[in-house]
């Protein structure tokens, strides 16, 4: 039972991150290397807010907004001028974001590990089907499912979602229909950055907050995005569930094989369905 709970909570955490990454790729055509750094920044900003206010819930609300605003500013100031250039410039630029964010974090918060305590509401384990389950894990599952559902409704049912989908698939056509695609790009980058930060906030009570925390998670996140299919948000949720559950099962039954499981899934996907396990088109080639 606890394996399932840990697996599901890991899956939703991965999905929050992967959703932002895949949305940004779908809309901007840019692979955002700095996604892990934004995740880390979300955790630090949350730490700071908890420090000031004593409330995790204010951190949960405010930190993603702060990082989203920063993401929007990054897109306007730095990414916008390089869309017309070769892809390599955009990759280098997002890599540059990592260095800038890490240095800034070092200056502001130093190198010490930081900690955000588990919110009181979810500090006690609960008994579920005969095992003791950390209740914060259950919160992650519930919260992650809610955010995922909200994200799907936003993309599939709202006007903004329709505009994002249209602009992602054919930017020129969307523009000639009077849609300011430049603004949509900024909004999507901000949304993606906010989701990354939300992931960081949710993870903050579980892990030590430190400079390298983005790296360990971003690899899994890239694996999810590739298995799900680049730019495919439905694929991302299924891939996140697949990988999250596989990793949780691995930790329980064969801890030394966990990393191997991740990359076997990745390689198997790339060999059989390079466009993503859940892509409608199947093989990309």
């Amino acid at each position: 039972m606890s394996t399932i709970v840990i697996g599901l909570s890991l899956s939703f955490l991965l999905f929050l991150l992967a959703a932002g990454l895949t949305l940004i790729f779908g809309m901007l055509g840019v692979i955002n290397f700095a996604h892990g750094a934004l995740y880390m920044l979300g955790a630090y900003v949350c730490f700071q807010i908890v420090n000031w206010t004593g409330s995790f819930w204010i951190g949960l609300l405010v930190a993603p907004l702060v990082v989203a605003a920063l993401g929007g500013a990054m897109e306007i100031a730095a990414l916008k001028p390089v869309y017309e250039r070769d892809h390599i410039y955009q990759l280098l630029l997002t890599f540059g974001f990592i260095l800038v964010i890490e240095e800034a974090v070092k200056i502001v918060w130093g190198l010490d590990y930081k900690q955000v305590p588990t919110p009181d509401l979810f500090s006690q384990p609960v008994a579920l089907f005969g095992s003791q389950i950390p209740s914060y894990r259950l919160f992650i599952i519930g919260f992650g499912a809610t955010v995922s559902l909200a994200l799907f409704l936003l993309l599939e049912r709202s006007r903004l979602g329709m505009v994002i989908r249209a602009a992602s698939s054919d930017a020129d056509m969307a523009q000639s229909l009077g849609i300011d695609v430049a603004k949509v790009r900024t909004a999507v980058f901000a949304l993606g950055a906010g989701l990354a930060a939300l992931g960081g906030v949710v993870a903050a009570p579980l892990v030590p907050i430190e400079l390298g925390m983005g790296f360990s998670v971003i690899i899994d996140c890239f694996v999810v995005v590739i298995i799900g299919g680049l730019g495919n948000i439905r694929g991302a949720i299924l891939a996140a569930l697949l990988l999250g559950m596989a990793r949780a099962a691995g930790f329980t039954y064969a801890p030394e094989w966990v990393e191997l499981i991740t990359f076997v899934l990745l390689i198997a996907t790339l060999m059989t369905r390079p466009a993503g396990l859940f892509s409608r088109k199947g093989r990309a080639a």
Binding site: M162, A166, S169, D170, D172, M173, Q175, S176, V181
Partner: peptide, 23 residues
């Protein structure tokens, strides 16, 4: 810019239709 021209009242029906496949 194109979106400003679209808002002014120019509409484009392109070659190959360019229907949004995901809508």
């Amino acid at each position: 810019k194109p979106h400003e021209l679209g808002r002014l009242g120019i509409a484009f029906v392109p070659e190959n239709r360019r229907i949004f496949p995901n809508l």
